[in-house]
C-alpha cells in the first residue's frame, strides 16, 4: 500500500469533490486494514472531525455515523436496545479492543467484507445507508451491488422496532475471521435470516424467510425445514477455515438454532 497525499477535509463536500477529481482517491475510514490492500492511493481522505461519529435516535431510526468506531457501536445503549442487542453482540466479537477502537462501521460496510461479523446482523434489521450523493439505500440492495463506490457513506440507519434477534458466529479462535455467521430476527411477525462469511459476503436466505412466515406452527419442524431451504438457496465456498460442505452444515445448525430462539 502506498499513499501519496493525506487530506483531512473540513467538509463532506470537499471530500466528495476530491473523490470526483481522482479515481485513485479513497476515503480511509479507520484505516485499520488499509495496509493489507495492495492499491496505490493518490489522496487518502480522512473524514474525522466532521462529526460523523455520533450515535443518535432520529425519526424512529437509530442513526450511527459512518465514522463511529466498532467499539462505540458495541458500547452504545441505543444499539444494544435493538433486537436483543445483536449488533453489539457481533461488534464485540470482532478482533480486540485495540482494533475496534480504530475500525469504523462505515469502513466495514463500504468494504463489503465477506468475513464481516457486523454486516450479517445489520441485514436482518432493515438497515439503510445514507450516502452524500446517492441518498438512502437499503443495506441489502447495497450489498448486492458490485460497482465500486464513489460516494461518501454518512450514516447507518436502523429502524427502532421491537423484536427478537439472535446472532452467532463460529470461529476457530476468538479473534479469527469467522468460518460462518448467521443472524435471525423476528420483527412484527416477519422473520429475517442472514448468513455471512460463507466465505462470501452476507446474504439473506429469502426462501427460508418466506417459508417460515407461511409456517402454520413455529415448531422444531418448521425450523428444520427452513434450515434445509436456506442451505439449498445459499452458495458456500471453501477456504483455509473450512470447506463449502462444512459451511453448509454449520449454516443448517445455526439457522435452526436462531429460529428456535426467535420463535420461542
Amino acid at each position: 500500500m502506498k499513499i501519496n497525499n493525506y487530506v483531512k477535509v473540513s467538509s463532506v463536500k470537499e471530500a466528495y469533490s476530491i473523490l470526483e477529481g481522482s479515481s485513485k482517491a479513497t476515503i480511509i475510514a479507520g484505516g485499520a486494514w488499509l495496509r493489507l490492500t495492495p492499491a496505490e492511493i493518490d489522496e487518502a481522505v480522512d473524514l474525522s472531525g466532521l462529526g460523523l461519529d455520533s450515535i443518535d435516535v432520529n425519526d424512529g431510526f437509530v442513526e450511527i455515523g459512518s465514522m463511529a468506531t466498532l467499539r462505540q457501536v458495541e458500547k452504545s445503549d441505543i444499539v444494544k436496545s435493538l433486537c436483543n442487542g445483536i449488533v453489539c453482540d457481533a461488534a464485540e466479537k470482532i478482533m480486540g479492543v485495540t482494533v475496534r477502537n480504530i475500525a469504523t462501521i462505515g469502513g466495514t460496510i463500504s468494504g463489503k467484507y465477506g468475513f464481516s461479523d457486523l454486516i450479517t446482523p445489520l441485514m436482518v434489521l432493515d438497515t439503510e445507508l445514507e450516502f452524500h450523493e446517492r441518498g438512502r439505500v437499503s443495506l441489502v440492495e447495497f450489498m448486492d451491488e458490485t460497482a465500486k463506490i464513489r460516494d461518501i457513506l454518512l450514516k447507518i440507519r436502523i429502524p427502532m422496532k421491537e423484536g427478537r434477534g439472535w446472532f452467532e458466529t463460529i470461529k476457530i479462535t476468538a479473534i479469527d475471521f469467522p468460518i460462518l455467521n448467521a443472524a435471525v430476527t423476528r420483527i412484527d411477525g416477519k422473520t429475517k435470516i442472514a448468513v455471512g462469511s460463507r466465505p462470501y459476503k452476507a446474504v439473506l436466505a429469502e426462501m427460508a424467510m418466506a417459508y417460515v412466515d407461511t409456517c402454520g406452527k413455529h415448531d422444531a419442524d418448521c425450523a428444520e425445514r427452513a434450515a434445509m431451504t436456506a442451505i439449498a438457496e445459499i452458495k458456500f465456498g471453501s477456504n483455509s477455515r473450512g470447506s463449502a460442505n462444512y459451511r453448509k452444515q454449520l449454516c443448517e445448525a445455526l439457522v435452526k438454532r436462531g429460529l428456535r430462539e426467535v420463535m420461542s
Binding site: Y6, G31, W33, L34, R35, A44, N101, I102
Partner: peptide, 16 residues
C-alpha cells in the same frame, strides 16, 4: 493509548 483508548499503532496512520 490514543486519547486514552488502546489502539494498534501498527495500523493507525500517523497523519490520522
Amino acid at each position: 493509548l490514543i486519547n486514552g483508548n488502546p489502539a494498534a499503532s501498527c495500523s493507525y496512520l500517523s497523519c490520522k
